[in-house]
Amino acid sequence: MTARDDIDAVEADSVTPIRDDPSALRLMMRNRGVFWGGMLLAVMVMIALFGPLLTGDPIALNPIKRLKPPSGELFFGSDFLGRDIFARVVYGARISLVVGLAVAAISVAIGLFIGMIAGYIRILDGIIMRVMDGLMAIPAILLAIALISLSGATLTTVIIAITIPEIPRVVRLVRSVVLTVRDEPYVEAAIAAGSRLPLILHRHILPNTIAPLIVQATYICGSAMLTESILGFLGAGIPPEIPSWGNIMSEGRTYFQISPWIIFFPGIALAMTVLAVNVMGDGLRDTLDPRVARKM
């Protein structure tokens, strides 16, 4: 889902440059959202990194213990093949985080590049923005489903399929920052001082995009994890043999009325992770952009 980016898309037209403060990092950590969101996210990352080493095998079948409710032995119960849900959920954290981070990184990188071009080269601006409008009109989930069904479901194609619909939102954000900043008197002074385009972009314009992009990246990360799980849930995501949270929940649908825990535990894990990312994003937004802080 991409709600958060949509807010940005609406607000993007009025982004102000952000003041750089030497104490920005300290301010950031003092923000409750950044602190608690960051802590929770750190815990999730630790679980993803080291968890699978400590739990049982997430794909080992155990036909005797099928659809068992949570217990001291099986913390989260077992699924219809008797697999340990706890082990699967712990392993699934890896998939979710990899997808979230990869989508955020790739879409920001590509969006930054295209957005700078659109903001600074007038002839291309119209064309690029029409293409972005077109891309934004296509529902993200359907676009991802189509891309995956054309190229086959692997971790890579899922990441690409989720990334593409996120790019236009980054482009719009970057472009609006560029358009605002390029009219600042200090940029005009640099033009008058004979500075060439690369220097102007690098020294005067690019730094203004960093803070809003960091915020945007956290929101993209959260929404990418949600999209990945939806794709998995619909059976259009990562191959079912990989225990991603979406896949675990997809398999639990049939047994929901008798074994709801199959869906609830990965659902809670996913919601907690996305919440951590979003809360951190809100906190970053408050500290990095004082103008929006007043608003949001």
Partner: peptide, 15 residues
């Protein structure tokens, strides 16, 4: 609001 953005639609549905 931030919670609403974080819970997957289908998980919410099942809850």
């Amino acid at each position: 609001s931030v919670g609403g953005f974080s819970v997957p639609v289908f998980v919410l549905g099942y809850i």
